[in-house]
């Protein structure tokens, strides 16, 4: 838990550093008629860095706890969830929402839920069709088509 705490603070600090560097490119001072464009980004980043440092100090001082960040068996099931999502978004970049969504749904149902094949196939085919008609046709909201610019064949 302590290690996770420290790692999280370090990640925040790195991000803050990047933001601070971006903010420095703007006018961080106070002009005649109020704060410059960079004033708030700069001082907010500074405030964030200081608060994160305070978290770090407290975390380092606190006694190590027995409780791990990931309870037993948590990491695998977490990865089982997150990796398919990341994969789906990657696939979406290429083949668009419908195919990527159907595949993701199918994989999750089969792999995580161990549902029977007919159900898996049925749901993952029905889903894109339903979404296409409701979201894209009815509500006129376009969905990602990916680099291949795939469109439903109807």
């Amino acid at each position: 838990m302590k290690r996770a705490e420290v790692a999280c603070v370090l990640a925040i600090l790195i991000w803050t550093g990047l933001m601070l560097r971006e903010a420095m490119r703007l006018n961080i001072g106070w002009e005649a008629s109020g704060p410059g464009a960079g004033f708030f980004p700069f001082w907010l980043s500074t405030g964030l860095a200081l608060s994160a440092a305070a978290v770090l100090v407290r975390a380092l001082r606190s006694p190590p706890t027995e409780r791990p960040f990931f309870p037993r068996g948590a990491l695998p099931s977490l990865l089982k969830l997150a990796v398919p999502i990341a994969g789906m978004i990657l696939a979406m970049q290429v083949v668009g929402f419908y195919l990527a969504g159907a595949l993701y749904l199918g994989v999750s149902m089969r792999w995580l839920g161990r549902h029977r094949w007919p159900l898996v196939v049925g749901v993952s085919l029905l889903f894109p069709v339903a979404v296409y008609f409701v979201i894209e046709r009815w509500f006129l909201v376009g969905l990602p088509r990916g680099y291949l610019d795939l469109r439903p064949p109807f």
């Binding site: 159907a102 291949l148 795939l150 469109r151």
Partner: peptide, 10 residues
């Protein structure tokens, strides 16, 4: 089949 149809439409 879905893929093929999509491809065809492209």
């Amino acid at each position: 089949v879905v893929l093929a149809l999509a491809g065809a439409s492209v």
